[in-house]
Simulated assay, not measured.
Amino acid sequence: MSKSTRATMALSKAGIAFTTHSYDYDADADSIGLAAAAALGEEPGRVLKTLMLLLDGKPACAIVPSDREVAMKKLAAALGGKSAQMMKPADAERISGYKVGGISPFGQMKRVPVAIEADALKQPHVYINGGQRGLQVRLAPRDAVDLLGAIPAAITA
């Protein structure tokens, strides 16, 4: 597995301190995020999942702990929209430039609005997908917010 992806290159270019962590990706897992947390031996609240959504019909991204679900109305409000819904997997892959299960918010093909669950900022470090299945990057959550221009908000149910 290559540990050099568009995501890791974007982090390096921005001067963000991070480490890469590989694990055995299980495409059949009920929850990819929870499976990643278990494989990494980390609390699910520290392993964040990247979700591609449509905010009033336009692409957006949400970053939430792997053991939580996005509250669509809260997400839409946080990003200044009226409604949000999950993006179809094929559209998520086309817009992000990554395969489902390996979607990272870093180094996407096009910059989109990003919201991150505010509780994640209480963690000393978090894991976020590194741009391919089975690869996570460990970094300070504030660095992710700064690089992405993400809006910290209570966006989970």
Rank of each mutant, 00 (worst) to 15 (best):
L48R: 13
A35Y: 04
A77S: 10
T5N: 00
G41P: 06
M87Y: 00
L135K: 13
I32N: 09
A27P: 03
A35N: 14
R68A: 14
V70K: 05
L40T: 12
Q123Y: 05
K82F: 09
Y25W: 14
G101N: 08
K13I: 02
L75V: 02
D143E: 08
L121Y: 06
A76T: 06
R6W: 00
L121R: 07
I95K: 04
T5K: 01
R94S: 08
L51Q: 03
R138D: 06
G57L: 07
H21K: 08
P113C: 08
I128D: 03
S2H: 14
E43L: 12
T8C: 00
A35C: 04
N129W: 01
K73W: 06
I103W: 03
D30Q: 14
L148D: 01
A27T: 12
S31F: 08
A62T: 03
A144L: 07
K88S: 06
A37P: 00
A78Q: 02
G80H: 13
A7M: 10
I116L: 08
K82R: 14
A90Q: 13
A157W: 07
L51M: 14
H21C: 06
V114K: 00
A144R: 12
V112L: 00
M1N: 12
A78C: 05
L53V: 13
Y23V: 04
A90D: 13
P152A: 10
S2G: 10
Y25K: 07
M1S: 15
A36H: 12
I63H: 03
T20I: 02
K13M: 04
I16E: 02
S2I: 11
L48H: 14
C61S: 07
